[in-house]
Design a binder for these strands. Structure first.
Length: 103
DNA sequence: AATTTGACGAAGC
DNA sequence: GGCTTCGCCAAAT
């Protein structure tokens, strides 16, 4: 496994309930500032196998990025169950819920 | 080896 | 705020 991939997994595991991180943020902290899309790929490949809280990952605008409507709702409910407010359009207040793993 | 593919992101209109 | 264009990069084809 590549160091980048391992870092991404560790960072994701470190996101506490009630917070979210963005793809770009995770990629940057994992050492690849422009590797947001790789984070997506890793999620697809590893989320189940590593018990990753993929629902705590949103895009840079703070919205649920899933293309599939039903999957979006699942993610939304998961987040709300942890205390994250999600509006009808699947948007989240990043100012309030973004998690910074290094500060 | 070359090309395509994304649950992305920043910038410009 | 919505839409387009361009840059990104590893994995799959």
């Amino acid at each position: 496994m590549q160091p980048f991939t391992r870092s991404v997994i560790e960072i994701m595991r470190g996101i506490p309930a009630g917070y979210v991180m963005t793809y770009g943020q995770i990629a940057a902290e994992a050492g690849s500032p422009r590797g947001a899309r790789q984070v997506v790929r890793i999620l697809h490949a590893m989320s189940a196998a590593h018990h990753l809280p993929w629902h705590r990952v949103v895009n840079a605008k703070g919205e649920i990025a899933l293309p599939d409507v039903e999957a979006r709702l699942n993610q939304q409910y998961s987040l709300e169950a942890e205390g994250v407010e999600v509006d009808a359009k699947g948007r989240i207040n990043l100012e309030r819920y973004r998690y910074y793993s290094n500060r």
